[in-house]
């Protein structure tokens, strides 16, 4: 029971974190048609900036400032890099962001070294929120979850209830038309790109303290975000939400399963055969935790190639 509840909580919070990054990615794709490969790099930059700034300013100001700074970086990338190659087509833009993500990773390695940095939860937040089945549950996890939720509420309200939101949504839906109606679409693009980057940066600043902050974090999370997007259907916020939570839960549950495929075969009386085969058959699910989301993605591709909530092809 304890395992189920704790895994549920952990999985949901990890899922929310994934959503914070994949939401920006999917919004930017929906609007500009650009798959921003560097999106997860903004997550990493957020973590490293917060790590540096919290030593000087304290945790909360660092969180705010690093989010804003990543937003500025995002705006600069859009304005001075992406916009210049826009005329060459979307493939080119994807490749450019791919190159930028590579440069960011190498710069981080150059400045901070190719190893994890000591970015930790501040003492004031390092306490247990409640005790569940005799185990204490860290308050910081709840904080991460609530920041993510607060962000969505804000974005949702912004998109649905404000004038800016209406312009943004129309620019996402029909950029040419919005431009013809006199809206500054390039400006909207830059704004959304920057907001998406800031969101990823915030996720990084918050999560970096809890998980590890290292030069590989962008790639690791980035691939997971791509899995989310393929599973959920690119361009669909609801799909991204659903897939993020699913992946989060699957990851968190599979960590605790000490069974293997051989155990499954035992149900059909084929354990001896399975153990004889060895390899994949005898591996415990828990040690495959990193692999399972990919397997899940392949299954989705088989069953519903367009993703859970994606448009049908």
């Amino acid at each position: 029971m304890e395992y189920y509840v704790v895994s549920l909580l952990n999985g949901t919070i990890y899922g929310l974190l994934l959503f914070m990054v994949s939401a920006g990615l999917t919004l930017i794709f929906g609007m500009m048609g650009v798959l921003n490969f560097a999106h997860a790099s903004f997550y990493m930059v957020g973590a490293y900036l917060a790590y540096t700034l919290q030593k000087l300013l304290g945790f909360w100001p660092a969180l705010v400032l690093s989010t804003l700074l990543v937003g500025v970086i995002g705006a600069l990338v859009e304005r001075y890099f992406l916009r210049r190659v826009h005329k060459f087509g979307h493939a080119h833009e994807l490749l450019l962001t791919f190159g930028i993500s590579f440069i960011i990773a190498e710069l981080i390695k150059l400045i901070y070294g190719n190893f994890p940095v000591d970015y930790r939860i501040p003492k004031s937040l390092d306490f247990s929120a409640f005790t569940i089945f005799g185990a204490s549950y860290p308050a910081y996890r709840l904080l991460m979850g609530s920041i993510a939720l607060a962000m969505f509420a804000l974005i949702y309200l912004l998109l649905t209830r404000t004038r800016v939101g209406i312009v943004v949504r129309s620019a996402i839906y029909k950029p040419k038309m919005a431009e013809a109606l006199g809206h500054n679409v390039p400006m909207v693009f830059m704004g959304v790109f920057s907001a998406g980057a800031a969101l990823a940066g915030l996720a990084g600043a918050v999560a970096g303290a809890f998980y590890t902050t290292n030069p590989n974090m962008a790639l690791e999370l980035g691939i997971m975000v791509f899995v989310v997007v393929v599973v959920g259907g690119l361009g669909s916020l609801e799909g991204a939400m659903l897939a993020s939570l699913l992946i989060g839960l699957i990851t968190s549950y599979s960590v605790g399963i000490d069974r293997s495929l051989a155990d499954l075969c035992a149900l059909f009386g084929a354990r001896a055969w399975a153990e004889g085969v060895g390899g994949l058959m005898t591996l415990k699910i828990s040690s495959l935790a990193a692999t399972i989301p990919f397997a899940f993605m392949l299954i989705i591709l088989l069953v519903r190639p367009s993703g859970l909530l994606g448009e049908k092809e």
Partner: peptide
């Protein structure tokens, strides 16, 4: 099974 950017993402994930 997918083309375009999906293809790129799937190859990366595989």
């Amino acid at each position: 099974k997918r083309s375009g950017v999906y293809f790129s993402m799937i190859t990366l994930a595989l």
